[in-house]
Simulated assay, not measured.
Amino acid sequence: MQAEEAARRWLADKGVSQVCDGWVSDEEPDVLLTANQVAHSWAGDVFAEDLDAADQVRLAFGLVDLLDEYWVTCEIRFANEGAEGPLPADVLWDGYRQRLEADRDAEAVTYSLWVDWFEDHVTSASAFAEVLGTDIGRVVAERSEALLRRARRVLECSGPVRWTVKEPTYRTAVRLPALHPALFRSLLTSFHDVYGDLEPADALALLDRLDLPTDTRHLAELRHVLAAGHRNHYRSPGAWDDAVRSCS
């Protein structure tokens, strides 16, 4: 909340304020703006502010909280890869972890992880380690709601992360039944995602350890394609349809 209020004050200094149906700027007070328009127009300016890099990152994450727009996370990534980057890693990833643990919508940050950090094999291993891999032992030991929330969210968008990177985390997570539904969805997206990655035999062995209702949607089909040795929906275009027919 503190970061969100700092972002609100920063926008107000730029002449941008929130009204009941959206946002307005002092330059065009009669034009109603969406949060997405505000993000596209002003979020990048955060990294031109006369602040140290850590405070710039904190302010940007405040805009994520305030606007709930994926584009703000794009500006964070651009700044990290830009001429003044990289951004301070501790502040950057702490920003992600805090929002993944928060009891509020986290779609902007999970989508950012999925399509920007996890699909890029240059960054996927380090990003996955920062948001979950390094902490999975603590998640299983402490089992706090905040840590479980973060683990579920990361697992569910981790399909593009290479199997060799995520498999040790999956094996640790399977010790905690509360994470089994999220692990199932992670295996499902690892198969279906365009950039999804898994090893069929290892994934099947993990799937068989999950305590799930027998009528879990797509459970039988996933087991079928993994048992047949298929790694990815797009590498074996007819495999899933065959599984659906076989399991119906």
Rank of each mutant, 00 (worst) to 15 (best):
M1G: 13
Q2I: 15
E4N: 15
E4M: 04
A6G: 09
R9F: 15
L11R: 01
A12K: 09
D13F: 08
K14Y: 12
K14W: 07
S17W: 09
V19H: 13
G22M: 14
V24F: 03
V24A: 04
D26I: 06
D26N: 12
E27P: 08
P29Q: 08
V31A: 11
L33M: 04
T34K: 08
A35N: 04
A35D: 11
Q37P: 04
A39I: 03
A39M: 03
H40C: 09
S41P: 05
A43H: 03
V46C: 07
V46R: 00
F47W: 09
Q56H: 05
Q56K: 13
V64P: 00
V64S: 02
D65V: 10
L66T: 00
L67P: 00
D68R: 12
E69A: 11
T73V: 10
F78P: 04
A79V: 07
E81K: 11
E81W: 09
G82Y: 10
P86I: 06
L87W: 01
A89Q: 10
A89H: 09
V91F: 08
L92I: 13
L92N: 02
R97I: 14
Q98N: 09
Q98I: 12
E101D: 11
E101V: 12
D103T: 06
A106Q: 08
A108R: 00
Y111L: 05
Y111D: 08
L113D: 00
W114T: 12
D116Q: 12
W117K: 03
D120P: 06
D120W: 09
H121Q: 06
V122M: 15
V122G: 13
S126D: 15
S126K: 15
S126W: 03
A127Y: 00
A127E: 01
A127R: 01
F128I: 12
E130V: 15
T134V: 05
T134Q: 15
D135M: 06
I136H: 00
G137I: 14
R138V: 13
V139F: 03
V139T: 07
V140G: 02
R143P: 08
S144E: 15
E145T: 06
A146L: 08
A146E: 13
L147I: 05
L147W: 02
L148I: 07
R152M: 14
R152Y: 12
V154P: 00
V154W: 00
G159Q: 03
T169L: 03
Y170G: 02
R171K: 04
V174N: 03
V174T: 05
L176P: 02
A178L: 08
L179M: 09
H180M: 13
P181T: 14
A182N: 13
A182M: 09
F184A: 03
S186M: 12
H192S: 07
D193H: 11
V194R: 09
V194G: 13
G196S: 14
L198D: 01
E199F: 11
A201D: 10
D202S: 13
A203P: 02
L206P: 00
L207N: 14
D208R: 12
L210R: 05
P213M: 13
L219E: 04
L219D: 03
L219I: 14
E221R: 06
E221G: 05
L222M: 04
H224F: 10
L226Y: 02
A228Q: 05
G229M: 15
H230R: 11
R231H: 14
N232A: 10
H233V: 05
G238E: 14
V244D: 07
C247Q: 11
C247G: 04
S248W: 07
S248D: 10
